[in-house]
Design a binder for these strands. Structure first.
Length: 462
RNA sequence: GGCUGCGUGGCAGAGUGGUUAUGCAGCGGACUGCAACUCCGUAAACGCCGGUUCGAUUCCGACCGCAGCCUCCA
């Protein structure tokens, strides 16, 4: 029985979908003005696994991840670059998709864009004004009147008075209350703008998600996800907008993933301490990055370091070494397994505990190695297939073992390596150990590790 | 200042009121010409101080330390 930690109630709850057998999932995606960093990668991978596991559990999942393609930072960046907004956002949507594909992240069912949802956004703001939750200010902006929504603060665990007491709320004369937030922003003359009943302008950040989630999934849906930093104010404001406009609960389960950290500090654009996905992929293969992300629970902080990536690499190398040369059985589904599957299922049912699930997979790997050692090819074939079946849920272990272990090679490399291995084996037959070791040293200096199995020498890259 | 959350062995990272997490690294052994791979075995932890309990790393309280949110941020 799947349990999900609900940020709204701050506890794990049994997951019950609104409509039996179906899950409607909305995740806040990227603002596309720059390359994705590892924090973005974490969101993508975490909710990719959530989606995969729900589907694997038999649910028909509708997964929506929006794209914010108009906001202040996009405008600023486009101006800096002397580039049109559309060209900028298209470019970074493309970059984002490259990163997501590399990481094995399946595409969401829909990726709505703010700029393509203007009619819905404007209609929703009109509804909010009509219902008294919002007001058009003198300066051409439209604001949400926080005092009109009784439940304001229920997600982030704050109340309006506490927030007012805080010193950091910006003063804005046009607002009735400093806590009110903008739904529609009047455009300056040179800024991109859309026509609206309040003049030309653009939507505030929060309203697009309320409008797009309702459009794609309806007014009441199952799960809403995103990074922890979106809990307040973004998601709090979404609730105020959606529930104010629709008069019903908007989301049953809120899921927030923890931050990626560097040296125990949040990785973020504003701190400038981030690594882009692109930079990391230049040094470690995508599956290593994905494995690294899944070694910790999604709500825990994830500390990024070379050492952690190296550990992930070592672990994956061991998995693929175990899988190497084993012909997996056909038609193995992990759910039919009696020995490991219950533990794996329990781990995933417990709020998607991928770290624990991976420990089960480590046990499968050990059993596989044992079977290999005993030349029990039937058992090995079964366990290899089981490992890949588990891996399918996490998006791991889907490539050929040699593709992972050998890395990118051209034919010349391979020919050279294999020729050296032949030389070495000839020396070994002649018991010329000095020569054999000399050749091995040469391979080592090329970054090649030799493994002598019975009758066959295999190699891999360090 | 307000509100969250966290503090586990050398490192990473789960979990539990009393019995092995797991991975990386280490140590001993098997295998190997030597290695590597693999297997077998092994050691090592629960921030600090009280309390509840037959028993607490696990529950409660204080303290210390860390992180996050309160402003754009995944």
């Amino acid at each position: 029985m799947l349990q999900i930690h609900n940020s709204l109630t701050k506890q794990k709850e049994v997951f019950t979908p609104i409509e039996p057998g179906k899950v409607k999932l909305y995740v806040c995606g990227m603002t596309v003005y720059d390359l994705c960093h590892i924090g973005h990668a974490r969101v993508m991978v975490v909710f990719d696994v959530v989606t995969r596991y729900l589907r694997d559990s038999g649910y028909e999942v509708t997964y929506i991840r929006n794209i914010t393609d108009i906001d202040d930072k996009i405008i600023a960046r486009a101006n800096e670059n002397g580039e049109s907004i559309q060209s900028l956002t298209e470019r970074f949507i493309d970059e984002m998709n490259q990163d997501a594909d590399a990481l094995g992240v399946l595409r969401p069912d829909q990726e709505p864009k703010a700029t393509e949802s203007m009619a819905e956004i404007i209609a929703m703001i009109e509804t909010l004004i009509a219902k008294g939750f919002a007001y058009a200010a003198d300066n051409g902006d439209v604001y949400y009147d926080v005092s009109k929504f009784d439940d304001y603060g229920k997600l982030s665990g704050r109340n309006i008075d506490e927030l007012r007491a805080g010193e950091r709320v910006a003063i804005n004369e046009a607002k009735n209350d400093p806590l009110d937030f903008v739904l529609w922003k009047e455009a300056k003359p040179e800024e991109p703008a859309w026509d609206s009943p309040w003049g030309r302008g653009r939507p505030g950040w929060h309203i697009e998600c309320s409008a797009m989630s309702a459009t794609c999934l309806g007014e009441h849906f199952d799960i809403h996800g995103g990074g922890q930093d979106l809990q307040f104010p973004h998601h709090e404001n979404e609730i105020a907008q959606s529930e104010g406009a629709h008069g019903c609960q908007s989301v049953n389960y809120w899921m927030h993933n923890g931050f990626v950290r560097i040296d125990d500090e949040k990785m973020s654009k504003s701190l400038g301490n981030f690594f882009t996905v692109r930079e990391v992929l230049a040094r470690y293969s995508a599956e290593i990055v994905r494995y690294f992300i899944l070694t910790s629970h999604y709500r825990s902080p994830l500390n990024y370091s070379d050492d952690s990536l190296e550990q992930a690499k070592s672990a994956l190398t061991r998995y693929y070494t175990a899988l190497r040369g084993v012909v997996p059985q056909d038609n193995v589904n992990w759910k039919d397994d009696k020995e490991f599957a219950p533990r794996f299922g329990d781990a995933m049912d417990d709020d998607f505990n991928t770290a624990l699930a991976l420990s089960v997979m480590a046990d499968v790997r050990q059993a596989l190695n044992r079977a290999n050692e005993q030349s029990n090819s039937e058992q090995a074939g079964y366990l290899a297939a089981l490992l890949r079946s588990f891996g399918g849920v996490l998006g791991l272990f889907q490539q050929a073992a040699d593709d992972f272990l050998l890395g990118d090679n051209n034919d010349d490399d391979v020919a050279k390596i294999e020729s050296l291995i032949e030389q070495r084996n000839a020396a070994r037959v002649a018991k010329d150990w000095a020569m054999a070791d000399q050749v091995r040293d040469k391979l080592t200096s090329m970054g090649i590790v030799i493994e002598d199995a019975a009758g066959k020498t295999s190699w891999r890259r360090v």
